[in-house]
Each structure stands twice: as C-alpha cells, then as structure tokens.
C-alpha cells in the first residue's frame, strides 16, 4: 500500500519533468535574464561593464508621453480585436461543426489567413487600404458609402481601423480551430437530452455548449489578449508606427 502511494506520487512529476526542465532552461531562464537586463544600462558586448541603473529604464518609459500613447494603442487593438475573434470564431466553428461534404473546404478557406505569414498579409492589407486601393474602391466608387477616398493609413484613427481589421481577419481561423476541437468534446447525448426537454437552439447553446467549451474559451481569451499586446509586425509594416509615431505599439 505504501509502495503504491509512493509510485503514484512520483508519476506526475515524471510526466512533467522532460517538458518542464526544458521550459525552465530555454524560456524562463532567458526571460529572467531579459528582465534583469532591463535594470541595467545594458552593454551588449561581452566584457563591457553594464551599469546598474535600477528603475531608470522604467522611469524613463513612464515619463515618456509616447509610451502612454503606445500603451493606449495596444489597449485599443486588444479591445477591438479580441471580442470579434472570439465571437466570430465560435460562430463559424458552430456552423462548421457538423459533418458535410463542403465542411473541409470551408475549414481550409477560413484557416488560410492563419497560415500566411504576417509579413505577406501586412503588405497585402497595406495595398488594400492604400489611397487608391480596393477598400476605397469598394466603399466609394462601388457601394457609394463614402463620398470621397479616405487616406486610411494617414491618421491614427483610420490607421488603427486597418490594423485591427487585419488582426481580426488573420485571427478568426485560429480561434475557430480551437473551438472546433473543443466542440468535439461536447457529448452529443447532452445536447440530445436538452432537445428532448424542449430547449430551442439558443437555449441549448447557452445551457449545454457554452459551459462545456468554457476551458477553450478561457484559453482563447488569454492567448488573444497576450497576442494583442504583442502585436508588432503588422503595425511596423502597415504604417511603420506613423503618422509621426501615432500608431506605435508598446513593443516598438
């Protein structure tokens, strides 16, 4: 009996060991080093003496008006992209949940933006939102929703719209994938039981599906919030932080 317990308590650690040791060495240790560097006037060259300056780097960042502007841009990006990615991703996952001959095709189509590199899609969006690009063409000349062409990338507000549109467009496929996997974990019997009880579509969704996939929802939300704060490539390539640093984000 005692042997049994000893073995049982060692088991989880054995399962964790290979991954966690690697993770500590290759991710956590460098992260601590990076954090440590942030307290120094860091000289990157070996041998050179780096001076300890304590919180100076942070103080400088917090006093810099530009830092706050960047922070608010990152915040706006997060607020504007995370909810749509979750809602639309889940919506599409629900539509694609059932087996049908066209289902694999649609999955690939929705996933295409995810597999295309950030550099390439950023450049694509730059051309779509150019002064005489497809977006202006569609909204002004074709649908007549606007009475003139808009210089999307020339002002903070409109440039953020383009950056956020890109973020949502590229991210939907990703959240759709995780929701699809999670939806497979919802036992059909539960849904059927709810149907028997006379629950309508929306009620079934609220009472059965949503609670069942909540771990996935939490996961996606956390990941998207982190990813939203780390947005960098698309901003750099779309506007280069312009006009005059107005669209800079925290990382840049």
């Amino acid at each position: 009996m005692t042997r049994q317990r000893a073995r049982a308590s060692a088991t989880p650690y054995l399962f964790l060991a290979p991954g966690f040791i690697l993770f500590l060495a290759v991710i956590i240790y460098p992260a601590i080093r990076a954090f440590q560097m942030s307290f120094f006037d860091w000289k990157i060259v070996p041998g050179a003496v780096s001076q300890f300056i304590g919180l100076d780097n942070y103080v400088r960042a917090f006093q810099d008006g530009h830092f706050w502007l960047s922070l608010s841009n990152s915040g706006i990006y997060m607020l504007a992209t995370v909810p749509p990615q979750i809602v639309i991703g889940l919506f599409i996952a629900m539509l694609l949940k059932r087996k049908s001959p066209t289902q694999p095709l649609f999955r690939v189509l929705f996933y295409l933006p995810v597999v295309t590199s950030w550099v390439v899609v950023s450049l694509l969006f730059k051309y779509l939102f150019a002064d005489s690009g497809l977006v202006n063409f569609t909204l002004h000349d074709f649908l007549h929703l606007m009475n003139r062409d808009v210089s999307w990338l020339s002002a903070r507000g409109t440039a953020l719209i383009a950056i956020c549109a890109l973020g949502v467009w590229k991210g939907i496929g990703w959240s759709m994938m995780i929701f699809l996997a999670a939806l497979q974990g919802v036992p059909e019997t539960l849904e059927e039981a709810a149907t028997m009880d006379g629950a309508n579509r929306w009620q079934r969704f609220r009472a059965v599906t949503l609670p069942a996939i909540s771990p996935a929802t939490v996961f996606i939300t956390v990941m998207l919030v982190i990813g939203g704060l780390n947005v960098f490539t698309s901003v750099l390539l779309l506007t280069g932080g312009g006009p005059g640093g107005q669209t800079d984000v925290v990382l840049s």
């Binding site: 649609f106 295309t116 497809l134 496929g173």
Partner: peptide, 15 residues
C-alpha cells in the same frame, strides 16, 4: 459561410 469565406479569401487570391 460563403460570405465569410469570400472575405477571407480575397486578399489571398490577390496574392
């Protein structure tokens, strides 16, 4: 699905 797929695919087709 079709509307969504079209929106997703236009930039890609352009590429």
């Amino acid at each position: 699905l079709i509307v969504g797929a079209v929106v997703m695919i236009i930039p890609f087709l352009y590429m």
